[in-house]
Structure formats: structure tokens, C-alpha cells
């Protein structure tokens, strides 16, 4: 994480204390006074509260997803599974609309991320080159779209006129480039690719494209990883474009399926009354399992990408 450690052993102080207490020198710092120790107790209490506030709802969801439908429906589950069962997951994973959604989301995430990444690099690299004529104007042209947008309906009309309504393209093209990602990539290229490399490549007779592919991109792997993951998580999590542009349930991404099941409470019709109650209980359970299943992929990659995310975030923040 970004937490840089400023603690280096301060030799003098450590030795003074070790002489007094006959203990091996501990790194750094004067001993805290009483007020400071009380203060630190407060800090730890505060942070533990933050930790629990975030963690407990997540634990509650996971515990519920592993519990018996009856216990879930009657609200008996708190932070530990009651009558452990995998029934919820079994049901979720055998539901065709959810599986379709899962497959679709994987498709949109892979294809969308690839398109976004290629387009972002294609605009960000040239704009990062100081010797490119018209760079400022084009940058302004790109950044202006951050300030003002046509709106939902005018964009919808474009998608409609292109004949992309109810096609998979509608989810991977209209939001393909994020201006923020372009800015991050631009400042990375500008600060991390030394001009000497370009000079040398030119002397060797390499073209701009050749230089980009064989020198710049291999040097930019961390950046490419950050940008790709930003796009991937965005694609995996978004539902709005699908809500706008898709009518055919076979094309729905997982998030839209989730919204229909979790928030609109849609369940399959045509069941007799006796089965309805049991059905309701199962539906409650399935909500929890669904939440877990749809979030697990993101949570699995997140710890590995968090540090790069921070880097990307900060690169963008430092040089806008």
C-alpha cells in the first residue's frame, strides 16, 4: 500500500534507553507520554470501529449465504452460518439466467477491457509526446468531454442510429475510453519513458510504432495492468448501459440479472401456493449466495491490484 515507512532507527535515543533498561535497542521514537498513550488507545478503538463497520456486513452476507433457508427467512442468522448448507449456491449455479449473465459478464469484461486498453494507449501515447504538433489542442478536445456531456438521451440516439441497440457492441463501445485513464496513461508515459530511449530508437531507424510496441509497452506493464484492471472492474460492475441499451435477456450482464433478482424481486412465476412459501425462503437465501458469487471474482483480484491502483490513482493526481 502507499503507507511509506518513515521509521528508521534513531540511534541515539535507542541506545540511551537500552542502557537504562538493559534491553536490546528498539527502533526509534521517544517513549510516549500518558496523554499520547491514551490518544493511541482512542486511535485503535476508532480504527477497529472502522474495520468492523466495513467487515461485519460482509461477514453477515457470507454467513447468511451458507445458512439454512428457513433460518435466513426468519432472520436468525447473524455472523455465523446457522445449519450450514450449500443449498443457496447449488440453486444459484443451476439457474440458467444467472449462468447466462455470468458468461455474458465474462465476455463483456474481456472484450471491453481489450478494446478500452488498445484505444486508451493509442490516444495516450501520442499525446504524451512533447514533439507532436497539435498535442495541446487534441488533449483539450479529449478532456473537454469530462466537463460537459450530451446526456443520456442524445447518447442513446447515437447508439440507436448506429444500429447497436440490443447488441453486445452497445456494452463495450459507448464507454470504451475513460478520460481519467487517458490522463493517467499520458502522465505515466511522459514521466517514465526517458527521451534518450526515443533518441536511440530514432538513430537505429525505428519508426514511432515500432518504438511504441517494442520499447514503450514492455516498459509500461504496471501501467497497463492498472488501466486494464480499472476497465475490467468497471465492466464487471456496471449495469446502467445494459439497462439502457439491452432488451434481450440473453445478452444481460450479471449485474442486470442481479438487479432483477435482488432488487426487483423477480422469481419464476407459475408455482402453486404451497410451494410459494418454500420458494420465497429459497429466494431469500439465493440473494445472499448471489451477492457472494458475483463479488468473489472482484475480491479475489483486488488485493493484488490494490497497490497498483493506488499508484495509478496517485500518478493521475500528481500530474493532471
Amino acid at each position: 500500500m502507499v503507507s511509506t515507512d518513515v521509521e528508521r532507527p534513531a540511534v541515539g535515543i535507542g541506545r540511551a534507553r537500552s542502557l537504562a533498561t538493559r534491553r536490546p535497542p528498539r527502533p526509534r521514537r521517544v517513549k510516549d507520554g500518558l496523554d499520547d498513550r491514551l490518544f493511541m488507545v482512542g486511535v485503535y478503538v476508532l480504527l477497529t470501529t472502522f474495520l468492523l463497520v466495513v467487515l461485519l456486513p460482509l461477514v453477515y452476507i457470507v454467513a447468511s449465504s451458507l445458512s439454512d433457508p428457513l433460518a435466513v427467512s426468519s432472520g436468525r442468522v447473524s455472523f455465523w452460518p446457522v445449519d450450514f448448507t450449500l443449498e443457496g449456491y447449488r440453486r444459484v449455479l443451476s439457474d440458467p439466467s444467472i449462468l447466462t449473465g455470468f458468461g455474458n459478464s465474462i465476455f463483456y469484461t474481456l472484450v471491453g477491457t481489450a478494446i478500452s486498453l488498445v484505444l486508451t494507449v493509442s490516444i495516450a501515447y501520442p499525446l504524451s509526446r512533447r514533439d507532436l504538433w497539435g498535442r495541446r489542442g487534441i488533449t483539450l478536445f479529449v478532456v473537454f468531454t469530462m466537463l460537459f456531456a450530451g446526456g443520456i438521451i442524445p447518447t442513446y440516439l447515437v447508439v440507436q442510429n448506429l444500429g447497436m441497440l440490443d447488441t453486445r457492441l452497445a456494452l463495450v463501445l459507448p464507454q470504451a475510453i475513460g478520460v481519467w485513464q487517458v490522463i493517467i496513461a499520458m502522465s505515466f508515459f511522459r514521466t517514465s519513458i526517458p527521451d534518450e530511449l526515443y533518441e536511440a530508437a530514432q538513430l537505429d531507424g525505428a519508426s514511432d510504432l515500432r518504438f511504441l510496441v517494442s520499447t514503450v509497452l514492455p516498459l509500461s506493464k504496471p501501467l497497463l495492468a492498472v488501466i486494464a484492471l480499472m476497465y475490467a472492474i468497471y465492466q464487471w460492475n456496471s449495469y446502467f448501459d445494459a439497462l439502457l441499451y439491452l432488451r434481450d435477456p440473453d445478452l444481460y450482464p450479471l449485474q442486470l440479472v442481479l438487479r432483477n433478482v435482488l432488487i426487483l424481486n423477480q422469481t419464476a412465476p407459475g408455482l402453486d401456493a404451497a410451494a410459494a412459501l418454500e420458494r420465497q425462503q429459497l429466494a431469500d437465501l439465493m440473494k445472499y449466495s448471489l451477492i457472494v458469487i458475483s463479488t468473489v471474482p472482484v475480491m479475489l483480484v483486488y488485493p493484488f491490484v490494490a497497490r497498483y491502483f493506488n499508484k495509478g490513482l496517485l500518478v493521475g493526481a500528481v500530474k493532471g
Binding site: 456486513p57 452476507i61 472492474i233 464487471w236 460492475n237 456496471s238 449495469y239 449485474q255 442481479l258 438487479r259 435482488l262 432488487i263 440473494k287 451477492i291 458475483s294 463479488t295 472482484v298 475480491m299 483486488y302
Partner: peptide
């Protein structure tokens, strides 16, 4: 990193 749909459902 959790989607809006999931946060709202939770």
C-alpha cells in the same frame, strides 16, 4: 470494488 447493484442489495 463491489458493484453498486450489490451494495444496494446488501
Amino acid at each position: 470494488f463491489i458493484s453498486t447493484v450489490v451494495v444496494v442489495s446488501m
